[in-house]
Design a binder for these strands. Structure first.
Lengths: 228, 228
DNA sequence: TTTCTAATTATTGTCGACAATATAATGCTT
DNA sequence: AAGCATTATATTGTCGACAATAATTAGAAA
C-alpha cells in the first residue's frame, strides 16, 4: 500500500531454492553428490516440506535428478550433456533473436546498449576476473530472451535451461581470448536486432553460442584426460 | 527379480498427477477454474502433501498458474497463448526432425511407418471420431521427438509443452478436412526422415504444425465471436 | 572366502495439525 | 447508500511424526 514497487510474496521454499541452486551452480555442492533431505533440512534450518518444494523446482531446471523412493543426485557435467544442452540453446536463442528483432522497442535496444557499455567498463577495470564476464554475458542473453516477448520461450530459457548453462560456465570457466571477443559479438548481435535484421541476429547468436560451447568442451576434454 | 520388464515405482503423487492432468486437458476441470487444495484432496482421497507435489508438476507444464499464498488457477486458452506455444512448437519439432533424420535407426523408422498404417486402419473404421486422430497424431509426434535422441528436447516437448498442446486440441477440436490430411503429412515427414533429408523434414513439420495452428485459431475466433 | 539371505538402519513418501497470509463478511463513518 | 476499516473465515505454507520403501549391514551356507 506504500509507494514501494510491487513486492512479490517470498516463501521459505523460494529462499532455500535460491540458496541450494547457487550452491550447486557454483560447485559448493559438487556434481554427482547424493542429496540428503534430512541433512539439507538441518543445514538450511527448515522443515522438509518447503525443502521438497525446492527440490522439485531444481529437478525442473535439470540441476538434480530424482528417482522415486531412492532420492536425488546433483547432475553430472558431461560432454554429451553439454552438446545436447547447447544444441537446444542455439536453436532457442536463435529464435529469440528473430523475435527480438521483431518485438523489441527502441528503448529496449537502447537499454541493452547501455548495459553493454557498462559491462565493458567494469570488465576493463577488472581485467581477467571471469566472474564479471560471466554475469555480464548472462545479463545480455537474458535481455535478448526477454525481448522475444514469448512467455514460453522466456520460461524455458531463463527459468529452466540457464542455470545448467551457468553451471557449465562457472565450473569449467571461460578462458583465453574468448572473454574479450564475447563483447564484440554481443555488440554485433544487438546491432543486427536494431537494424531489424532477425536472420543475421539469429546467425550471429548461433555462432556466438557455438564458440562458447567449443571453449567449454575443450575444458571438459582436458579435465577428462588430465586426471581420468 | 522376475522376468517382468523394469517396473518404475509409482507414488500417490504420480497417480493424482495423471488424474488431475487428464481432467484439465479434457476440460472436466474447466479452464480458468480456481484450484482448491482441500477440495481436490477430498475428491481424490489423499493428503495435501502429494497433492501439492502434483500441482508443482502441473505448473511445470503450464496447465495451472500459481501465485504465492493465493493459490492456483487452471490456465485459460487464448489466441496469444496459442500463437506463442505453436511458435515454439514449430521451432522445436522442426529441430527434432533434423535430429531424427540424423539419429533414428532404420528400425525406429520402420516402427513409425507401421504405426502410421495402424492408425490409418483404425481411423477408417472410426471415421469422424476425432479422439483417435488426436491420439494417433500425438503418438506420431512423440515418436519423432524421441527420435531426436536429445534428452532436453524430449523433456521440454513431451513432458512440458505437449499437455498444453493437447488441451488446445481436445477442447477446440480438429475438424473438417484437416483430419484426413494429417495422415498424408505424417507420411511425407517420415519419408523425408527415411531419406535422411533433415531440412525437408523440418520444413514439412513446420507447415504441418502451422496448418494445425490455423485450424485451432479459427475455432478460437469463432468461439470468441459467437458468445463473447 | 564368497555369495546369497535376512534383519537392521536410514531415507523417502504421506499424514494431520498449526501458523501465516489472503479472501470474504460485517459494521461503521461520511 | 457508498466507501472504508475491521473482524471473521478460509486457504496456503510449514512443521513434526508415522508408514512404506530402499540401502546397508550382519549372518549363514556353499
Amino acid at each position: 500500500m506504500l509507494a514501494t514497487e510491487f513486492k512479490e510474496a517470498i516463501t521459505a521454499a523460494d529462499r532455500v531454492l535460491v540458496q541450494i541452486r547457487t550452491a550447486i551452480v557454483e560447485g559448493e555442492i559438487p556434481a554427482g553428490t547424493k542429496i540428503s533431505e534430512p541433512e539439507l533440512a538441518r543445514r538450511y534450518d527448515l522443515s522438509r516440506a518447503p525443502l521438497r518444494e525446492a527440490l522439485a523446482r531444481l529437478e525442473r531446471c535439470h540441476l538434480i535428478e530424482r528417482t522415486p523412493n531412492a532420492g536425488a543426485r546433483v547432475v553430472k557435467l558431461s560432454i554429451e550433456g553439454l552438446r545436447s544442452l547447447y544444441q537446444l540453446r542455439e536453436e532457442l536463442e536463435g529464435l529469440a533473436c528473430r523475435l527480438a528483432a521483431e518485438h523489441m522497442t527502441e528503448q529496449d535496444i537502447a537499454e541493452v546498449r547501455a548495459l553493454l557499455d557498462q559491462h565493458l567498463s567494469t570488465q576493463r577495470v577488472r581485467e581477467g576476473e571471469s566472474y564479471y564476464q560471466e554475469a555480464g554475458d548472462v545479463d545480455f542473453h537474458y535481455r535478448v530472451i526477454l525481448g522475444s516477448k514469448n512467455p514460453y520461450l522466456i520460461n524455458i530459457l531463463s527459468d529452466e535451461l540457464y542455470f545448467l548453462v551457468r553451471m557449465y560456465r562457472v565450473q569449467l570457466g571461460m578462458n583465453g581470448p574468448r572473454v574479450s571477443r564475447a563483447f564484440d559479438e554481443h555488440k554485433a548481435i544487438i546491432n543486427a536486432i536494431a537494424n531489424r535484421d532477425g536472420e543475421l541476429a539469429d546467425l550471429l547468436m548461433r555462432r556466438h553460442i557455438a564458440a562458447s560451447k567449443r571453449n567449454i568442451e575443450q575444458q571438459l576434454l582436458q579435465q577428462g584426460t588430465s586426471h581420468g
